[in-house]
């Protein structure tokens, strides 16, 4: 069956099998940012945004994304022009092995898009579906706070749509 969607701002179409999951479709097509972790919707390392809402792509049929807008970490920023969240995650030491970070960044972006000046409880709630096994959560929490402040103060591009560079 034919799947049409907007992927990182570009109209794309794929020929998919009915049971194909969004995570498989993305990774088979070179979008390696979404990671296969638990394969069960528990860990959040496969998170991508569908119409601005972060979901677990490992339990989400590709067919559900038809006609919708999908954003992966490749669409958030580039090496040359990282998103404010990507800058602050690095600056705050929030990244260790990095496996959970794409999902966590997309969850954090959803939060800042909806709530530019989040309270501490909002940040905890926004990241509660993303598990990290290296750093704990303190530094990531701090990074989201700093990014929010930076975006509000206009020191970073924040929501600027980025192009879909692919990375492994």
């Amino acid at each position: 069956m034919k799947l049409e969607m907007k992927l990182n701002g570009k109209d794309v179409s794929f020929e998919i099998a009915g049971p194909e999951l969004l995570l498989d479709l993305l990774r088979d097509n070179g979008y390696f940012g979404a990671k296969r972790g638990c394969d069960n919707g528990d860990c959040g390392s496969c998170a991508v945004q569908v119409d601005g809402k972060s979901i677990c792509s490992c339990i989400y049929f590709a067919g559900q994304a038809h006609g919708r807008e999908v954003t992966t970490i490749e669409g958030l920023g580039t090496m040359e022009h990282p998103h404010a969240l990507q800058e602050t995650f690095v600056e705050c030491g929030a990244v260790q092995c990095g496996f959970c970070i794409p999902g966590m960044l997309l969850s954090a972006k959803e939060l800042l898009d909806e709530c530019p000046n989040p309270k501490d409880a909002d940040i905890r709630e926004a990241l509660d579906g993303n598990l990290c096994r290296c750093t704990g959560y303190t530094k990531q929490f701090e990074a989201v706070k700093v990014a929010a402040k930076r975006i509000i103060e206009g020191k970073s591009k924040g929501r600027k749509p980025a192009r879909g560079g692919k990375s492994r």
């Binding site: 919707g41 809402k53 972060s54 677990c56 969850s107 709630e125 926004a126 579906g129």
Partner: peptide, 9 residues
């Protein structure tokens, strides 16, 4: 429901 990612879906 403990995960935002699941609550969204």
């Amino acid at each position: 429901q403990p995960s935002r990612l699941l609550r969204n879906a």
